[in-house]
Structures are given as C-alpha cells and as structure tokens.
C-alpha cells in the first residue's frame, strides 16, 4: 500500500482497538458487548495486516497465538459457567458474585467477566479465520 494508507492506519488502528475494549467493558451498561467488541478488535488487526502486507513467517506465529487465546477464552467461559454450579446451589450459569448498584462500571456480578472472555474469544476467532485465509494464499503461491 502507499505511504498515506500506512500512516493513516498507524494513527487509527490503536483508536479502533481502544474502542473495541470500551465496547466490551461497558457491555453491561451501553449497547454492545462481547460479540460486537470482539469483532471491532479483530478489525483493527485486519486493518494493520491489509495496510502493511503479510510477512509469512510472522503470520504463522501470530496464528498459533490467536488459536491459543481463542481456546483458552472459551475454556474460561465454560469454567465461569461451572463456577455457578460449584459456588452455591446447583444452578449452571448462576450469577453468584454480588451485583452492586446497577449503572456503575463494576456491577452486574459475573456478567462483565462473561463479556470480556467472550470478547477475547470472538476477536481471536475472526482473526484466526482471516490469518488462515492469508496463509492459505501464500502457501498456494509457493
């Protein structure tokens, strides 16, 4: 890509990443949540890859990392669901952490934790699919 695209991407990608984190963390207060924020975060990485081109060896390493994060995040979501089973009573998906006052950033018990880990999982999944396509193209060209 040209110089203009590269410079603009350098300036914007960080802001997009921060906006994704904002959407995830405020998921229980404002519209948005784990799924939307995760795709926004993946979008910032995809923008960087599209603007700066692909370095094959580095991308393979990135793909290994994003696969790992994706699997760990979905595992933690399952553990959070099981923690409701273990903490009190016999209810799967129980919201057992104290709820606090509605409307504050730290409130709603376990829901923000679900939002954060589902966000990580979605971001890593979308990024992994994109990286798999790019690596497939480069392997085909060799």
């Amino acid at each position: 890509m040209t110089m203009i695209v590269k410079k603009t991407t350098q300036l914007i990608a960080g802001l997009i990443f921060l906006y994704g984190i904002y959407v995830i963390i405020h998921g229980h207060l404002t519209p948005g949540g784990g799924f939307a924020g995760g795709v926004i975060i993946a979008g910032s990485f995809i923008l960087l890859i599209l603007a700066f081109g692909s370095d094959f060896l580095r991308l393979t390493r990135e793909e290994a990392g994003s696969t790992l994060y994706e699997n760990l995040a979905i595992l933690i979501v399952v553990f959070l669901a099981v923690s409701g089973l273990l903490a009190t009573g016999k209810i799967f998906f129980l919201n057992w952490i104290p709820k606090g006052t509605p409307g504050e950033l730290v409130s709603a018990g376990i829901l923000p934790l679900y939002n954060i880990f589902v966000g990580i999982e979605v971001a890593a999944s979308v990024l992994t699919i994109f990286l798999a396509l790019v690596i497939f193209k480069e392997e085909l060209a060799e």
């Binding site: 998906f93 509605p102 709603a108 018990g109 829901l111 679900y114 939002n115």
Partner: peptide, 24 residues
C-alpha cells in the same frame, strides 16, 4: 441480573445456554 443493558442481561443470564452454544 444487575445489568442496566437489558440485552446483556438476557444474553448472558437468562439465555446463557444459547450464548455458550454460539461461542462453541
């Protein structure tokens, strides 16, 4: 649920199984 955003309350609390299925 303690969540002001109703959609999050439904998605992660009342319909938690659905969300787990989607993520899987």
């Amino acid at each position: 649920t303690g969540s002001v955003n109703l959609v999050t309350g439904v998605v992660f609390d009342f319909r938690g199984y659905d969300t787990l299925g989607e993520a899987t």
